[in-house]
Amino acid sequence: MGSPWLRKVHAPRQRLSHLTSFERDAQDAVDLMKALGFDKFSLLGWSDGGITAMMAAAKNPDLISRMVVWGSNAFVSQQDLELYEAVRDAWVDGIAQYAKRPEGSICMELLPLISCPTLIIHGEKDPMVPNFHPQYLLKHIKGSQLHLMPEGKHNLHLRYADEFNKLVENFMED
C-alpha cells in the first residue's frame, strides 16, 4: 500500500487557493526531508520558494540549520500589485489574493519565529521585488544578514552564478 506520505504526494491535487499553497509546499518539503531521513537541513529559496522556505523555517525551527532566500517577500504591497500587472498571468491572480489580507501578509507573522542563521540576497535591479522587501526581512528575521547585488535582477543566481554560489557556499560553511 505504501506510505501515507507517498500517497499524498502522488495523489492528484485539487485546485487549491494560492493562499494555502505556500503552507502546503512548506509542509511537503519538510515531510520529504524527514522521509529521506534528514534530522536537520538547510533551505535555499528563490522568489516563491523563498516564501516557502521562510514558512518552513518558522514552523520547524529545530529542523532548519541555515536558510538563504532571494527575490522573496513576506507581504504584498500596492507597488507589488502594479509590478505584477505588468507581467499578468495566472500566478498574478493567485498572489494578488494576499493583498486582501491585513497588511497584505503572506508570512509576516511567521518571520519572528525564524531562528536559523539566514542570508537574504537581493538584486537591487529586481523588477519584481522592490528593495523594501529585503529590508523588511532583515529587520524581522533575527540575526539575518543582507547582501545586495547592485546589478542583480530577479534571476541573479543565474546571471551572477559564480558570485551567488560563492556567497551561499561561504554562508553555509560558517
Rank of each mutant, 00 (worst) to 15 (best):
L111F: 11
H18D: 06
E85H: 13
Q135A: 10
M149E: 10
P127S: 01
F38Y: 11
L110W: 11
R7W: 12
N165Q: 08
Q97E: 15
P61K: 06
S105K: 08
A26Y: 11
V129R: 04
Q78A: 14
N165S: 10
A29V: 00
A11Y: 15
Q79L: 09
F41P: 06
D28N: 13
Q78Y: 10
P127V: 00
P12M: 01
L111Q: 07
P112T: 11
G123M: 04
C107V: 08
L137N: 10
W91R: 10
D89K: 09
E23L: 12
P134V: 15
S47K: 00
S72L: 11
L36Q: 08
V168Y: 05
S17H: 14
S42E: 03
H154G: 01
N131M: 11
V30E: 01
A57I: 00
N60S: 09
I106A: 02
P112M: 02
L63P: 05
L16M: 12
E109M: 15
L81Y: 08
V30Q: 00
A57Q: 00
R101M: 14
G143S: 07
G123S: 08
D126S: 03
K59H: 13
R101G: 10
I106E: 04
Y160F: 14
I121C: 07
W46R: 03
S115I: 02
R24I: 12
E85Y: 11
L81S: 13
Q27K: 13
I64D: 00
P4Y: 04
D25C: 11
Y84C: 02
Q78W: 15
D126M: 03
P117G: 05
L110N: 07
H18M: 12
G71F: 06
W46S: 00
L63I: 00
M33P: 02
S3Q: 02
V168A: 14
M55I: 15
A86E: 14
P61Y: 12
F171D: 02
R88W: 04
R101D: 12
E163C: 06
W46C: 02
S77Y: 08
L119T: 06
A96T: 15
M128P: 00
L158V: 01
K34P: 00
S21C: 12
V30I: 15
Q79W: 05
A90Y: 15
M1R: 07
S77G: 12
L63R: 11
F132G: 09
L110D: 15
L63K: 03
M128F: 10
